[in-house]
Design a protein around this nucleic acid. Structure first.
Lengths: 245, 245
DNA sequence: TTCTTCTGAGTACAGTGTTCGCATGGCTTG
DNA sequence: CAAGCCATGCGAACACTGTACTCAGAAGAA
């Protein structure tokens, strides 16, 4: 019999079977599963216990790989920043096109993971996350190549970032609320209509704004709003660039 | 003896003494106290129980005036928007000055109540809060008076709003984290320095950016960054205005 | 072999938001 | 003035939460 494990334990039945055949827990695995859980069930559903059982592990086992929940969230945020793929070609695209592309990518990423909206305010800009650092570096490089000095490039990157996250966070919060109520965007606008009209009664400008938006598809309306602001910012940067050059 | 209350209860000792002399609980009172609690102890310290005891009431009593915690937070957010005082004179200031002033006011308000950063992502723009509606209306009016059509005015307001909230949310998160660690901003930068340098090793631009910021006062650095972005946005809007006019 | 070092997990604790039912008193009716 | 309704406060309870502590067992080193 080749099997001669140490038999120090009274009964075979009580002794747990050999180590878990699952390759074990890893930080990467935990973070990936957390993203999946967040995507499918939202921020409120993320608990250490639930995440643990999803991984076939106890809740407290996760703490071997992650200091606490806040740290897990930092990791998760940087993880999704990692989804933003950079154009790997170094052919110098015009700074404006490159920035526009990246802004749209960032927005799309946030809308794909709308739970980020809830945590960005606690994590801020995930300070030292490698993926975010890489992105920042590339964006600064773009502005420098366009002729901005280094410190201004940094400012410019932060400006675009602040705008995109600010605008999209608000969108994401809106969409999350919709998802929770199970309504479509169109439905909700119509339901909200009387209440909004009531509330806006003393503000004719808002009222008219609502009325104008009534017929339009809310999604394209959001899109237009986003590009409007982005274009203005890029215009402003362009003015600055032409004046310093 | 003028006192002849109904004596249906066996023992005087067991019967609770007359009603609470405190004028009772009101929604306004609850919201005000919540703001105070949030300001002094931060977002994590806001629990219904703690808020209740602060008001000399049981935790569950609050639910008579507020549907749930989320609703309380919506109220609290609109409450602090109400702190933004509008210039009540209707003398038409230049749109740019007026917007600059409001942007700085909004930033100051958020930095005064940094816990907002944590909830803005869940509340989004507190959709129908009266104070926020008033502010929006006034800002739209400013842009309309400057010559923007209504729908563009709406876009413009949202753009400025997104920028300010995006940028300031990030600042607030940073300051909150500092406060939790009990360090000053200067301290932290110096402590973080080796880690940041380590992390930024492969990104010379970031490294140089850190180095440049090393000597400067972080606070003025943040201020400068904020006004830089704001100026660019206003420049962009100005370009747009001159082209349509 | 023996010893150390690492990993998973069970238990427990102090808290959380919220529901339910009950008691109480003030206000509105008769 | 009396009776009843109803808004309000509140204690108990429930289903969860994050996480500290402790211990069992396996893997690797000596």
């Amino acid at each position: 019999m080749p099997i001669d494990q140490q038999q120090t334990i009274p009964s075979v039945w009580t002794r747990p079977r050999g180590r878990r055949e699952q390759p074990a827990l890893s930080r990467e695995q935990i973070v990936a599963e957390a993203v999946q859980l967040l995507d499918s069930e939202g921020i409120d559903a993320l608990s250490m216990r639930k995440l643990g059982t999803r991984l076939g592990a106890g809740a407290t086992s996760l703490y071997r790989h992650v200091a606490n929940k806040d740290e897990l969230i930092e990791l998760v945020v940087d993880e999704v920043y990692g989804e933003l793929d950079e154009p790997d070609t170094d052919k110098p695209a015009h700074w404006r096109d490159a920035t526009t592309l990246r802004a749209h990518n960032l927005r799309a990423m946030i809308l794909k993971h709308p739970w980020i909206a809830s945590v960005l305010g606690e994590v801020g800009v995930a300070y030292l996350g490698p993926n975010l650092m890489r992105l920042s570096d590339r964006m600064i490089a773009t502005f420098e190549a366009a002729g901005f000095p280094l410190d201004e490039s940094d400012h410019a990157v932060r400006t675009v970032f602040a705008y995109v996250t600010g605008m999209t966070t608000s969108e994401a919060a809106w969409l999350t609320m919709l998802a929770r109520s199970g309504q479509t965007e169109q439905d909700w606008v119509e339901r909200l209509w009387p209440a909004a009209e009531e509330a806006a009664q003393s503000y004719p400008r808002l009222q008219k704004g609502y009325a104008d938006k009534r017929g339009k598809d809310p999604r394209t309306s959001r899109d237009e709003n986003f590009v409007y602001g982005l274009e203005r910012i890029l215009d402003g940067l362009e003015v600055r660039l032409s004046k310093t050059a």
